Computed example of a mutant assay.
Amino acid sequence: MIRENSARTIVFVSLFAALTVIGTMIKIPMPTGAFAHLGNAVLLLAVLLLGYTKGSLAGGLGFMIFDILNGYAAEAPYFLLESFVVGAFAYGGFLLYKKNPTHVWQLIVIGSLTGLGKLLMTQLKNTVLFVFLGNDLSTAFIAAAAKLPASLINVVTTIIIVALLYFPLKRILKR
């Protein structure tokens, strides 16, 4: 995690928020109408490198800015909340290794736990959305599950990117 210094902290939270916006703009369209993107990888890196609160805030702000700029403003508050929930899954995995993963396989475990949080939040959000649209709970749950492939691709992509970038970024930030 970065050394404590308020100006440095603000810069890094802002940097990771901007990188989240950029990562989310790199969209891979899915047949379900959703899209896979690289923003979740930035969120996970932010939590691992900045800590739970600052990392989740950076990712959440980045997702909110992306949503507001791209016509999804109504969903922006949800993604701030989701960033903190998914960030908690990430940080829980991080704590398994005493905040110091030393092997790629440990990052894969952390990424998998983070992905589980993302998939649960996506399923919950989409189920609630389909219920509000007039579907009964079982139909809404099934319809929501049909949208999970994009999130699953996000999870796998996130794990790969974090496994490649975490150790080099950690060394850079320790300077």
Rank of each mutant, 00 (worst) to 15 (best):
A88Q: 11
N154I: 03
F63Q: 13
H103A: 15
N126P: 02
Y97M: 10
A150Q: 08
L148I: 04
V128N: 01
T114L: 04
G62V: 02
I65C: 13
E75F: 06
V128M: 11
V104N: 07
A90N: 09
F141W: 06
W105L: 15
K98R: 10
F79A: 09
S151G: 15
N100Q: 13
A73S: 13
A140L: 10
F130R: 09
N135T: 04
F130K: 08
L124D: 03
F130Y: 06
L152N: 04
S112D: 05
N70K: 06
I142P: 02
V156M: 14
Y78A: 13
L133R: 07
M64R: 04
F66W: 09
L80M: 14
A76K: 01
G93R: 01
E82K: 07
A76R: 04
G117W: 06
L137W: 00
N135M: 14
A73T: 05
F94A: 12
A143S: 13
L129D: 01
L95W: 03
M64C: 09
T102P: 09
G71M: 10
F66N: 10
T114N: 11
H103N: 12
Y78T: 07
L129P: 01
F79Q: 10
V104I: 08
T139Q: 12
D136T: 01
A145H: 00
L133D: 07
G87I: 03
L137P: 02
A143I: 01
G117Q: 11
S138N: 10
N135Y: 05
F79V: 08
W105E: 14
L137Q: 04
V156T: 09
Q106A: 12
F79R: 09
A88S: 14
V155N: 14
L80I: 11
V86W: 11
L148D: 05
G92D: 07
Y72D: 06
L129C: 02
T139F: 00
G62K: 01
F130P: 04
S83M: 08
V131C: 06
Y78Q: 11
V156R: 12
V131N: 04
A146Q: 15
V109Y: 02
W105G: 10
I153Y: 00
G62T: 03
T122N: 15
L148G: 02
V128P: 01
K118W: 07
S138M: 09
T122H: 14
N70R: 04
L152W: 03
L69K: 00
E75V: 05
L96T: 00
G134C: 06
G71D: 05
Q106K: 13
S83N: 15
L152K: 00
S112G: 14
G117A: 12
G115V: 01
A150V: 01
L148W: 03
F141K: 05
S112Q: 05
S151T: 09
I110Y: 04
T102K: 15
T114H: 11
K99R: 11
L80V: 09
G117E: 11
L119D: 08
N135D: 12
F141N: 06
G62R: 03
Q106G: 08
D136N: 12
I65L: 15
L119R: 03
Y72E: 08
W105K: 15
